[in-house]
Design a binder for these strands. Structure first.
Lengths: 243, 243
DNA sequence: CGATGGCTTGATACTGGTCAATATGGGTGG
DNA sequence: CCACCCATATTGACCAGTATCAAGCCATCG
């Protein structure tokens, strides 16, 4: 849907994939509105694996959308230990937490080669002020962000490691599906230790959990490639229906 | 600061305390803007303890601000078990999660007698569309909501029950202070089991943890009244600095 | 005054964290 | 192109912390 003009204005390549996100979904913002901020909306160079998109504490001047490539956000507490707070896939807004007090609350790190689109806040606010529908989309995007956090909280609320893992995989699968890809074929862009940090489990427990699911014939794992063999049983596990 | 006119327009009583929140803080929105939506912004009757402000699944037509009295939000998963997702104190926006897909994601329940101010979404959007500063405040409020979720995530990330509890109390203390009250004098509006659910601990562990802190002279607890005796040690505990 | 719900305290079992050894595999340099 | 190497992941043995089960306490309310 990304029209040639839209592509040109937003920067360049890959916006076709970005269509997924409400922000980019036409006819959200007409060309003429985009025009008005074309000076400030700019595309970004590719970010390679492990490179940092923004750091906790930095003033929030923009939010970001990955066009392709996934990210993690990592919070570092005063004790110095890291915790993975979220994973972001193409089309999802990154950095919304920073809108609270104007500073990012976590580091954002590319999990693989990625291309992000940077949206400066002034531009965001300007368009939002002029287009009620766009403003609603922004709210919606933030609401979705909060909803994802809530899902994460519910994951951590489950006491059984196996259930958390199952919820995690199930969630990945869903998101994968929404991206139009095969929901049963997961490429884990993140390391085991990222997963562990995200689920508040040590890496050994993650590993054991995956092995167990594999033994039970629910999934097939090989390194960072994972195939869901029985979505039903995976979901059941996620809901704590069985051991 | 709530001028008499403002009071009248918004409904009535207690808006003085609401001043705490950016949304209500003048001169955020001028009287004339308020005027335009005075028809739709309305105050609410008191809600007594345990009464439900909204339920998960209901369409989000409004968000709410408690003028006095605290709330909890409770998510119920498909397995049927409840989990406390958040606590809300006067001046904090409740229901923002609903902006994502237009449905509330959790039940909101009054922990004590409360008075809430209901802000219909159309009104919110209308003013936001007209006043850039108000719109920014909304974003800020949502950002704060996400930040609170992140704090919660960091709490659940700590593996030691004692640390989680300490973080929780420390957080309460801070919020209490921000409300202008004595940060060392906490009235726990929520039950032990609410705390347990929030921290993903069973009620016995919460109880034991509080008792232990009391034995160590960090706090003094009596039922739902709690006094922080040593804020430093509490904070140290929260950061995992010692056992 | 008894009953009820919320909280505390105790004893035991089990899950997951810790420590340690081994395996795997992607990348680099010869 | 192969071999080595280091980072990442898996597996095992053990132990600590918290859930579980159970009993008793305390306060409030009818």
């Amino acid at each position: 849907m990304a029209t040639p003009e839209l592509k040109k204005l937003f920067g360049q390549r890959h916006c076709d994939e970005c269509v997924l996100h409400p922000l980019c979904k036409p006819p959200l913002v007409g060309i003429e509105e985009i025009e008005r901020l074309s000076g400030s909306v700019l595309a970004r160079r590719p970010l390679e694996r492990d490179s940092v998109l923004f750091r906790a504490g930095e003033p929030t001047r923009s939010v970001f959308i990955s066009q392709n490539g996934s990210f993690k956000t990592v919070a570092i507490n005063e004790a110095g230990d890291e915790q993975v707070i979220g994973f972001y896939f193409p089309g999802e807004l990154i950095g919304l937490e920073g809108l609270g007090d104007g500073k990012f609350r976590a580091d954002a790190v590319a999990l693989e080669l990625a291309h992000v689109c940077e949206v400066p806040l002034p531009a965001l606010e300007r368009v939002a002020g002029q287009r009620a529908d766009f403003q609603r989309q922004m709210m919606r995007a933030m609401g979705e962000g909060m909803a994802r956090h809530q899902d994460h909280l519910e994951m951590l609320g489950r006491k059984q490691a196996q259930e958390r893992l199952a919820m995690f995989l199930h969630g990945l699968s869903e998101r994968q599906g929404r991206l139009g890809r095969d929901p049963l074929q997961l490429h884990l862009a993140m390391s085991r230790s990222d997963i562990g940090s995200y689920l508040s489990l040590v890496i050994e427990t993650v590993s054991r959990g995956l092995s167990k699911m594999q033994d039970e014939g629910i999934i097939a794992v090989k390194g960072r490639h994972l195939r869901v063999l029985s979505p039903q049983r995976l979901q059941a596990l996620a809901h704590g229906d069985e051991a």
